[in-house]
Design a protein around this nucleic acid. Structure first.
Lengths: 138, 138
DNA sequence: ATCTCTGCAAATGTTTTGCATCAGC
DNA sequence: GCTGATGCAAAACATTTGCAGAGAT
């Protein structure tokens, strides 16, 4: 058994410090909201206009592997990414502007909904509506 | 203003009774679980092997417009479809077999998580884990 | 006979990958 | 200078659409 332990990353990669990597990380350091790959590209291109979308995807994947970012999957929209290491929380998806916001807290009590024989491991909760900006604009 | 009222479908279509439409509807009448387009195709092809995926997509969309089906969007996986007209409920996603199950009931109490100025319109809740079949198999 | 529906293939949108070149170390 | 990272373009994957022909009414 010469292989890697279970869960150990095969492809680590992207460990070199480059302007592209700095640009991607910088976006997340300036913005607390979970961001889509396109949002990251557009924001990072303000600093580095030649940045390509493939590089953004590669860094997002790599930063998730390094546990510097966390993948945020939401129903029916492209995935978002946020800084890892936050407390348990959920998200609000505004269908006016499409932005996703972090919410604090959790109502809990989900175990009672699970049928016999099913094993509950985690849960996802997304609140949908209009954010403050879009409520006022409408 | 000769147009259609808000919400009225522009493209109704698919109102003709065909073997393809019967095959798609039949799958949902036999299966209570929310199904992905591919699950619908594979099940319907047992009855009608020449059925194409494009036709499945067209009927799924049309049946949602007719409010015979309801779209079920889940984080990070292709959308599912279930019979419309059910009571408010949520879903369980098994990461063993990938199947989605309907859950009864709702814990409620989400409004307290929403920041000031945000307008809450709906919520999505998905429980993740292993279904009875996958728990026993593992 | 008409007009819609179907299946195929091509188009679309998103994400991934191959590869020659560029740049960090 | 070596090796990994980048940008482009092509590939992959899921979904939608154009179109000619089949089928429902």
């Amino acid at each position: 058994m010469f292989g890697l332990a279970a869960g150990e990353a095969i492809l680590r990669g992207m460990e070199r410090k480059t302007r592209q990597r700095d640009a991607v990380c910088g976006v997340f350091e300036r913005e607390s909201r979970p961001l889509s790959p396109l949002e990251v590209l557009q924001e990072a291109q303000r600093e580095l206009p030649t940045l390509g979308i493939a590089t953004v995807y590669r860094h997002l994947r790599s930063l998730v592997e390094e546990e510097w970012l966390q993948l945020v999957e939401l129903p029916g929209v492209p995935p978002r990414y946020e800084r890892a290491g936050k407390h348990h929380h959920h998200h609000f998806h505004c269908h006016g502007c499409g932005k996703v916001y972090e919410l604090e807290g959790c109502t809990g009590g989900f175990a009672s909904l699970v049928p016999d024989g099913f094993e509950l491991e985690s849960h996802t909760m997304v609140l949908h509506g209009r954010c403050a900006g879009c409520t006022h604009a409408a």
